[in-house]
């Protein structure tokens, strides 16, 4: 998994490339915790696979930003990844956008 973060319109965008699984989830969590941000978008366009530990990590990230009075949006996930959010009803919890720009606009 490759991780990158940058600022876009006052929002911290985390770009994830690869799989968010039991082995890589702790890496994403650490990367996020090193850069505390109130307004966050996680760009999932390049995420090819996610398991329940990956979903749990995103839930933890959401809880953290909300507890700080901020917000977290998810962007550009594949149909397959999106279906897991729908099955688990996490699509009710997260703001899910088609693309990064839309997600940034919603969060900022």
């Amino acid at each position: 998994m490759d991780l990158k973060s940058f600022q876009q319109d006052g929002v911290t965008v985390f770009q994830v490339d690869g799989e968010i699984n039991i082995s890589t989830s702790p890496e994403l969590k650490k990367f996020f915790e090193k850069q505390p941000a109130k307004k966050v978008v996680v760009d999932l366009e390049r995420v090819t696979y996610i398991d329940s530990s990956g979903l749990a990590t995103l839930v933890e990230m959401l809880k953290k930003t909300k507890s700080q009075g901020g917000g977290l949006g998810l962007a550009a996930m594949s149909e397959k990844v999106k279906s897991l959010f729908e099955i688990t009803k996490l699509d009710k919890l997260f703001s899910i956008s088609q693309n990064k720009q839309e997600a940034v606009s919603k969060v900022k």
């Binding site: 329940s52 009803k89 919890l93």
Partner: peptide
């Protein structure tokens, strides 16, 4: 039940649920 509203923020219990769904 991981999909009920009060459990959505929990970080455990989705694996078995996904197995049953998929």
């Amino acid at each position: 039940i991981c999909t009920s509203e009060e459990n959505l923020l929990r970080t455990r219990g989705r694996g078995v649920y996904l197995i049953h769904q998929l």
